[in-house]
Amino acid sequence: MPSLGEIIRESQIWKSIFRHPAPVDRRNRIVVMLTNFFLHLHPVSIKKQGIALSFTWCMGGVTFFLFLVETVTGVLLMFYYRPTLEWAYNDILALRDVTSLGILRELHRWGAHAMVITVWLHMYRVFLTGSYKPPREFNWVVGVILLLLTLLLSFTGYLLPWDQLAIWAITVGSNMARATPFLGYEGPGNQLLTIDGIDMITNASDARFGLLGARFVGEETLNRFYVLHCVAIPLAASLLLAIHFWRVRKDGGISGPL
């Protein structure tokens, strides 16, 4: 009698998906890395120290995993949440008090905080092991952009609950844009951008206005931040993550002493 596992693994469906026997022997452990879409991100074999937890702290991996957690919980939250002045706060309130899976909001928020922390720790590790040195200079640069995107993701998400904490944190944060040199209404040098005596940089045309979509944090801002948070920045981050991982491989895998 073949066991249930064997029946499943011998079935046409299973074989059509995996195309090779279970990775229990050396040959198939190699094959699985080459044929599986998700696993082919990795090489087949790797230096032992490259996977030592005490070396990488697994922080890049944890950051990526948190990014995935944020994506999944974020999409689910989007089913509930409407980014309008009328609904935003109430939807969050309902997530807390009424909705059965309201804990998704906690997962999403704490996951976001955790991701900021782990991305810093990852950068810290990469610095302390000198892993940004040639040939990995460019991947460090990609990483810095990812760091910036992580912070921006967190920042734009902070506004969405539309409570006092949210709008004032974003107000404080975005007030600084008002002082952008040349392009900010209260920044040095904006007087230079004058045509025929008409100021080009006003509080309705400066950098802060571009960020908020209005003169103060309002409905336009909520919409703008929502789109940035749910679409634009995640897309940009995904692209850069793909490049980041690709480059880890192309630069010769995890760094190590020569």
Binding site: V44, K47, Q49, G61, P257
Partner: peptide, 22 residues
């Protein structure tokens, strides 16, 4: 770090570590 220079297979060594981390 140099002492751990030998190569190991990613499945299972790394894949399992990642799973446990997750």
């Amino acid at each position: 770090e140099k002492l751990d220079n030998e190569k190991v297979l990613v499945w299972p060594d790394l894949v399992y570590t990642e799973l446990i981390c997750m």
